[in-house]
């Protein structure tokens, strides 16, 4: 590997969330030291994931099959829909094991300043889904940020005519916090104690 290859690797690693240039250099060295046991399997896993993993056309989850494993799982309760901002939030809720319904990933939150409007999010598909499929309850599990809460209220208004029960997570979700940061216990408790929006 010439220095420019190495630099390119470091530059790319530094683009990962939570890695600055310093930790990227450390990670690159570590990978090179574990060439066979880590670097090559990682490279293969990256190629394969880039090739096979797709967004689920129903819920927006990431999986190698479409619809995703969760959407195909007939044991899950199709009458409850949990709406989350990002796939990471879906995974965080799955880790708690406390939710047995189905999910809907929005792909972000409303933010005029970031140019994200209702059309950029999976809101129309959500309204369509909630109106069919025998859905009885929609849980809006947005983070407690201003944009997250604006989005939750906006969706609640859009779902208003459907006669569903629309709930949100109980407090305990810290202000400005994202679900992915919460420990599983807090998240499960917030889910159990959900209340009407």
């Amino acid at each position: 590997m010439t220095p420019t290859h190495l630099e390119r690797l470091i530059q790319l690693l530094a683009k990962l969330p939570g890695l600055g240039p310093r930790s990227a250099r450390r990670a690159a060295l570590h990978l090179l030291r574990k060439r066979e046991s880590l670097m090559q399997p990682l490279a293969a896993a990256l190629t394969e994931a880039a090739d096979k993993v797709r967004g689920c056309s129903v819920c927006g989850n990431l999986d190698t099959v479409d619809p995703c494993g969760l959407c195909q799982d007939s044991r899950r309760d199709g009458t409850i829909l949990c709406v989350v901002e990002e796939v990471a939030d879906l995974w965080a809720l799955e880790r708690t094991g406390a939710f047995k319904g189905r999910y809907h990933v929005l792909g972000g939150v409303l933010s005029a300043l970031d140019g994200v409007g209702p059309d950029q999010l999976a809101i129309d598909p959500l309204v369509a889904r909630a109106g069919t499929d025998g859905v009885k309850e929609v849980i809006l599990a947005m983070g407690a940020t201003v944009d997250g809460q604006t989005t939750a209220h906006y969706i609640a208004d859009r779902l208003g005519q459907l006669g569903l029960s629309v709930t949100r997570l109980a407090h305990g979700v810290p202000v400005g916090g994202e679900l992915d940061y919460l420990d599983d216990g807090t998240l499960a408790a917030a889910l159990r104690a959900r209340r009407p929006l």
């Binding site: 409303l110 933010s111 005029a112 300043l113 409007g117 209702p118 201003v146 944009d147 604006t150 209220h153 906006y154 208004d157 859009r158």
Partner: peptide, 20 residues
């Protein structure tokens, strides 16, 4: 700021979004 930005956007803003 969000409201001001929406109001000044080229496209007519979504009234439900403004309401919220």
């Amino acid at each position: 700021r969000e409201r001001a930005h929406l109001l000044r956007a080229e496209r007519a803003p979504d009234p439900a979004w403004l309401d919220v």
